[in-house]
Structure formats: C-alpha cells, structure tokens
Design a protein around this nucleic acid. Sequence first.
RNA 1: GCGCUCGUAGCUCAACGGGAAAGAGCACCGGUCUUCUAAGCCGGUGGUUGCAGGUUCGACUCCUGCCGAGCGCGCCA
Length: 631
Amino acid sequence: MPSPSPFPSEYRDAIARAFARACAPALERPPPVGKPRVAGRGDLATPAALMLAKVTGENPREAAKRLLQNASLPDFVDGAEVAGAGFINIRLKPEAKTAVVGEILQKGARYGSRPQEGETVLLEFVSANPTGPLHIGHGRAAAYGDSLAKILAFSGARVWREYYLNDAGRQIDILAASAWLRPQLPPGETLPEGAYRGDYLAEYFSAAAAELPQDGCRLSPEEVAALLAQSREAAKAANTEDAAADALVNAAKTAFGEEAFAKWSAKVAAVMRDSISADLRTMGVEDFHRWFSERDDLRSGGKIPQALEELAQKAPGALYEKDGALWFKSAESGDDKDRVLRRANGEHTYFAADAAYHRDKLARAAPGGKPFARLINVLGADHHGYVPRIAAVVRAFGGAEVALEIPLIQFVALYEDGARVKMSTRAGKFASLAEMIAAIGADAARYFFVSRRNDQHLDVDMRLARAKNKKNPVYYIQYAHARLCAVLKRAQENGGGNSGDDVNSVNGGDGGDGGDSTARNMQLAQEPAAVVLCERLMAFPDLIARAAQNRAPHLLAAYLLEELAPAANSYYEKTPRIIREKNPDRKRARLSLLAAARAVLASGLTLLGMSAPQRMYSDDADDDGNNGGGQ
RNA sequence: GCGCUCGUAGCUCAACGGGAAAGAGCACCGGUCUUCUAAGCCGGUGGUUGCAGGUUCGACUCCUGCCGAGCGCGCCA
C-alpha cells in the first residue's frame, strides 16, 4: 500500500528518514537534507554518506553508492546520484514540486507555521529609558524584536513580549526637573549641562506642565536666575555635570515638596512612555504584553531589597561588603570585575534593579503555568559589557536551567545622497525614529532595520528607501504582491460563469478537498518558471524554521527579496494573458499558483511587520526626479 | 591597556551543528511592452573570504598570532 504522499514541506524529513534507516544504526541523528549548494545538481542533497563514512571509515563515495542501493526513497523522488566527494543529490518529480500550491491554498496563512506547542519565551526588547524620544537605534531594536517575536510565534513558540521601563530614579528626576524648569527660562537662556535640554521637552511636557499649580511650583525670574547660577557653580565646584543636575532636582523637590515631586516625576515618565508607545505603533510594532515598570513593579513593592536578600540566600558568598558598598562577585563568572549592587550612600544601582527584574522574570509563570523556558533580552550593542553580569545574576538566582540569550543590535547610520545624516544626542538633536519614519515610511523603516544581521552595522540609504523602483527592496517586494493581487482581482471581475468559480475556489483558502484537486490540476502548469516558483514556495517553511532557530529575521528579508519576489515576477512575465487562457483547468492552475505566491508573500511581509498592499500606484507618476525636480 | 563584536566582488550584504566549484542585490554593458501593474522581465562581466600559521578527508565557518574597524571598560543609567 503506498502511503499518502506527504506535503512538499515534509519532503526533507521523509528523505532524511529514508537515509537514516539505510544508515542505521551508525548515525546518531538523521542526516541533514538541504538545498544543493550548486544549482542544477538536483533539488535536494544530503551529506549522509560523508557522515556515515566518518563513522565506518570507508570511502565516502563507496558509502554513498551503498546507501543509494539500500535506501528506499519515497514516491515523489525522481532519482538520485552520487556527486563530488560523496554527496547524494536528489531530484524530485515536477508534479511533486507543484503540489506545494495545493498545500498552500489549503493551509492559507498557516502555511509554514507550526502549532503553538513550542517553548515559552519571554522576549524583552527596546526597553529604552523614557527620558527622550526613541532614536533610530531603538527603532532597529524594535523592528528586530517585533519581527523575531512574530517569527518565533509562527514557528510554534509561545512568546511573551515585554518592555522594561526605567521610570524611576535619578535620570527620571533630572528629566522631571528639566521639564519643570524649562518653560520658566527667560528667552535665550538654557538649562545647564547635565540636565535634559532637548527641544522635545517643550513639545512633550507643556500640557502636563500647564496642569501644575501656579503657586509654589512657579519660580520668579530672579529665583530662576539664582537657581541656574547655583547649579552651574555646583558643577564647577564638584567638577562634574552631575552636580548641576542634582542641584536642579533638589530645587524642584523643595519647590514641590517630596511627595508632589514624586508625582510629577511619575507623570513625566508616563508621558514619555506614551510617546514611546506611539512611536512604536507608528512603525507597526505590536503592543507589549507588559510594560514592566521599575517604579510600580519593583520599587514600590520593595522588590529590590528583597532580591538582594534572596541573592544572598541562594548564592552565599556571591555578595560581600567593601568600602561601605554591597558587591556582587560577577568577576568569577566571566565579568571584567565585581559590580556594586548597593552604594555606600544606601542607594541601589541600576544593576540591582535589573537583578530584581530578572528575579521576577524567573519566578513568574509563563502561559501554561510553568516558568519561562527561555529569556531573550534584545540589547543595544553598546551594552554588550552588561551581558556577563546579567548572565551571572540569572545563574545566581538559580536560573541555570533557563536559557538566557542576549542578541545585540549594532548601530544604524543614515545616509542621504551619500552623506551621513548627522545624529547627536548630545545637543538634544536626534535622528529620531519618528523623523525617520516620516521621511521614508513605516514599511521601509521596518524592512531596512531587519535587512541585515542584527550584530552587523547597518547603513540605510534614505534616498533608496524612498525610491519607487526595483532598486528599492521594499518597493520591489510589495510590487510583486500588488501585481499578483491585480491579476487575481481582474480574473475575478472578468470571470463570469464557471471561471468565476475557479477564481473563487482559488481565493477561498481551505475548503473541502481544495489541496488535492489543485494538486492534480497543477500538472497543467509546469512550465520552468512555474516549477522554479514552486521550489521557492517549498523553501518557505524551512526558511522560517531557520530564521526562528537563528533569531535571524534578516534571512526572511533576503528570501523575499532575492528568491520569492523575483520568481513571482518572473513567472508573471513569462506567462502572459493568464486571464484569457482558454483551457479552464490550466487557467485555474495558473491562478492557483499566483494565489499561492501571493499568500506566501503576504505571510512574509506580515512577519516582518510590513503591509502587503493590494495596489501600489494608480495615477501618480513620479520618477524620483533625476532632472529638474525642484528643491 | 583589557574585553566584546566584526573584516567576504568596485558598493551593500548572504552562506542553516565544518561539507561540492563561496552566492545575491546595486553599479556597469546589451536585449525586451498591439498582452492582466515594463515602477517589470531576460542575458552578460566580477573573488587569494584582512594577513600568517594550526586542527580536519574537507575551513568563510573551529584554534593561535598579527593588522585594521566599531563599541564597552563609574559606588552613571
């Protein structure tokens, strides 16, 4: 009895199993089955014989020949040959490849996905301090984290998305004092170095500041002048900008009263948080399951001292006192040096708060009841020095069985006409994420942010990002999707009679036997370009698995740009007048292929957080003007 | 100085626990619309994987040294 033919996405496993049986019991795990490196040498390839030869010590080519004789390969295999040092190349029957169309139409948006039965993951990303607008580096982290979350979930993980908000502490107090004082400055005057001085202060906090009571919270011009002078003197005396900021904070606390200032400080942090959230929404980043607040979730419950106590308990010897401060022995775990948790003045450090935060992560129940199996913290590459101490503290809390990963996001540089766009946080001038999105659009920002490996520097060509031609990857991919939509839409409109039914069934996704009958029909659409397109569609599930496994959304970006979109465009170009095709079965087969390609393009774009437009243009003809175009 | 990340075509980048003759896109050259989106498609030119060793049947991939780049090295956050 021939077993039912598997879906094309299961071919690799079926072949791997066949070779594993033929190798048994020599190999510990099934041999990998992948794409041949060299084009034109078959559809799939495996180094099974090389692996076997390593164990048995025989000649790899001999082993390969023996394997081919012993292995009973599945029905969909057309043939297999030994090549090179002992690789086995496998050819598939064309109809086995075009069968992927039926699988895609049956599974719809689920094609390439796995059921939500995988491990639980707490994915923390962005976590920018709420002291100013997001800049482009945060944007890259957001795009990476959001796409990674989608890809992991698509491949079966249960992902919890979280933002750690440092909405309390000295920096927030400085921001609160700055936001309070700024509207009271005489014209031409600025806040001292060390305070927050960006123009966004006026923009973000004027509404909040207007609600402050007039008395007490307002200084006279003389008082303002005196405070500024005092602050600058303090900085000079102590030889650090920090002193200037502290002077402002103290003045604010006096003017407000401790309690009222704490409220104001919380208000300022909340305003910044809302602004960050809005920026992220603009870029299509899904909201976080939780904004973990240092103020509300750690400090107010006394969680930080609790964490230090538990640390002392669980990892005796890992804490010690020196010079009046409390230290954590991270140097023993690969850190450069030991780190201070509680300063001599009694205040805890940022690291202590982070330790408490990770203690909370470890103690929490993931969806399903058990603790999270994996913690992923997406960090800016400038924080790489922070990795060892976090890993050490997670281990000290007993999180040894929890996998901690910290992907680093390298810097982004913007280029406009070949010139680097200046970005300086120093002077309060930002290359802000909002500005970038306004300039090139959310889709382009999302694409470019994940177009390179996260740990590589990224250059974004702003002019290219705006271009409306195939040089712009964003445009090119979306264009492929839009033109397929146009054809399918036209087919539906022109259809009438039975061809209308064809299109409906094509567009309908899974219904009844959809897959099987489509698969049979596909025999009528096996032109080379169609087969190539089907090969690319078949690669999608493996690609997603690899992107998830390697935490590498860029692989999906590259797949869409270099494999799927070109194949879809190419098939479209080489198969003219699909709508007028006389043979209804052939027409239906071709439209099915277009619908399958459209579905996978849409899936890919969605996983990258990009839109999949139905149409790209109508009447606006512009060419990014090379001659004349004003300005 | 120490640590982390990295060095691949003229440019921007890929290469799945080591696997065949290292792949794309851009740039450059040449074709292609009485046809559903030509804002597209088809064809062509390009390499000592920074340098020198080592491990291996096999190295862009692992190890060592050197050269070069970025980032980090507070009782800051």
